[in-house]
Design a protein around this nucleic acid. Structure first.
Length: 305
DNA sequence: AATTTCACG
DNA sequence: ACGTACGTGAAATTA
C-alpha cells in the first residue's frame, strides 16, 4: 500500500502538478533544455523539465504521456526509435560472430540468446527463457556480476553464474571485447566510442578494488552507450539540415536517447517520414550490423508508440 | 546541502 | 570470502 501510494505521489508531484506550471503563456508550450555537454557518455540530458523521463511503463503513467500532443489537429506526432541499438553496437564494436550473425539474419536477439544459454533450438525457447535472456543481455552491457543477475532474475547465485558462463561461450567475442577494453583503459587512462570521443577514467588503476571495479564497468559500457549517443546526434544534425533544405514545416521536438519525436503537418508526413527513417538508419553507414528504426504516429505521444 | 527514492533510456 | 549493473533529473526527506 505504501509503494502504491508513493507511485501515485511521484506522478502527481513530478508531472501532473509540475508540468502545467511550465507552459509558456506566449507559446502555449513547454520549452525544456537539452544539455549537450553534461552526461559523461556523450548522451544528451534534459532539464527544466526533464522530458526524457516522462512515464510509459505502467498504466497510471501512460495517462501522463497522453497529454503530449502535436500543435494542432492538422499535425501528428511521429516517434522514431532505434531498435535494440546498444546490443547492435556491442555486436559491431566487438565483431562477435554469433551476435552479428543473429542480427544479420534478422533473428530476435533475446530469443537467440536464450537458445544459446539454455541449449535449445530457437523455436523451443519459452517466454520465461526469453525474458531471462533479455535481462542477461542488458546485464552484460552494464558489466553486472552473478550476484546482481541472481537478484534481477530471482534465482540462486550459482545459477546466475552458469548463465553468464553460457553467455560468454555463445558470444566469445564479447568476452574478448570486455577484456581488451579494460586493458586499453588501464594503459591509456581513457576509452573511446566508435567515432573517437574519449571518456577519461581516473580510477581505472586505483588500489581500491571497488573504485577500480566501478571504473572497469564504466570502461565496458561507455563505448556502447557513447556510440549510440554519437549515432543519434549525427542523425539529428542530418535531419535538421534536410528539414531546413526541404523547406518543411516539420519540427524535431524531442530526443530520448534512442528516440526522436517530431511534430509534423499531416500533409508532410508521407514525404518526411522516409527521410527521417533513412537518415537515422544511415547515420553511420560503415557498419556491418543492420540498424533498424521503428516509427509510429498518433494524436499524442502515447499513441505514437 | 546531502541523501533517498523513483521516473526514463 | 565478500561484493559491485551503465547513464540521467526532480521531488521529498533527512541532516
Amino acid at each position: 500500500m505504501i509503494l502504491d501510494y508513493r507511485k501515485l505521489a511521484k506522478l502527481k508531484s513530478t508531472y501532473v502538478d509540475a508540468l502545467p506550471k511550465l507552459i509558456n503563456p506566449k507559446t502555449g508550450r513547454i520549452h525544456s533544455s537539452f544539455n549537450q555537454a553534461r552526461a559523461a557518455t556523450g548522451r544528451l540530458s534534459s532539464d527544466n523539465p526533464n522530458l526524457q523521463n516522462i512515464p510509459i511503463r505502467d498504466e497510471a503513467g501512460r495517462k501522463i504521456r497522453k497529454a503530449f500532443e502535436p500543435r494542432d489537429e492538422n499535425h501528428v506526432l511521429l516517434a522514431a526509435d532505434y531498435s535494440q541499438i546498444e546490443l547492435r553496437l556491442i555486436a559491431e564494436i566487438s565483431q562477435d560472430e554469433a551476435m552479428l550473425d543473429a542480427f544479420v539474419n534478422g533473428h530476435d536477439i533475446h530469443q537467440a540468446t536464450a537458445a544459446g544459454v539454455f541449449n535449445k533450438k530457437l523455436d523451443e525457447v519459452t517466454p520465461d527463457e526469453r525474458r531471462a535472456a533479455k535481462t542477461v543481455n542488458f546485464a552484460i552491457i552494464y558489466g553486472a556480476g552473478a550476484t546482481n543477475l541472481s537478484k534481477q532474475l530471482n534465482i540462486p547465485r550459482k545459477e546466475a553464474t552458469v548463465l553468464i558462463e553460457n553467455y560468454f561461450k555463445q558470444y566469445k567475442g564479447l568476452k574478448k571485447y570486455m577484456t581488451e577494453t579494460v586493458e586499453f583503459a588501464r594503459e591509456h587512462g581513457y576509452v573511446l566510442t566508435l567515432m573517437g570521443r574519449r571518456r577519461y577514467l581516473r580510477d581505472i588503476n586505483a588500489r581500491n578494488g571497488l573504485e577500480r571495479s566501478n571504473s572497469e564497468r564504466i570502461a565496458i559500457n561507455t563505448p556502447i552507450q557513447g556510440t549510440a549517443a554519437d549515432m543519434i546526434k549525427v542523425a539529428m544534425i542530418n535531419i535538421h539540415r534536410a528539414l531546413k533544405e526541404g523547406n518543411f514545416k516539420t519540427k524535431m521536438i524531442m530526443q530520448v536517447h534512442d528516440e526522436l519525436v517530431f511534430d509534423i503537418p499531416k500533409e508532410e508526413l508521407e514525404k518526411v517520414s522516409p527521410i527521417i527513417e533513412d537518415l537515422m538508419k544511415n547515420a553511420m553507414p560503415q557498419l556491418k550490423v543492420p540498424i533498424l528504426v521503428g516509427m509510429d504516429t498518433g494524436k499524442n505521444w502515447l499513441e505514437a508508440h
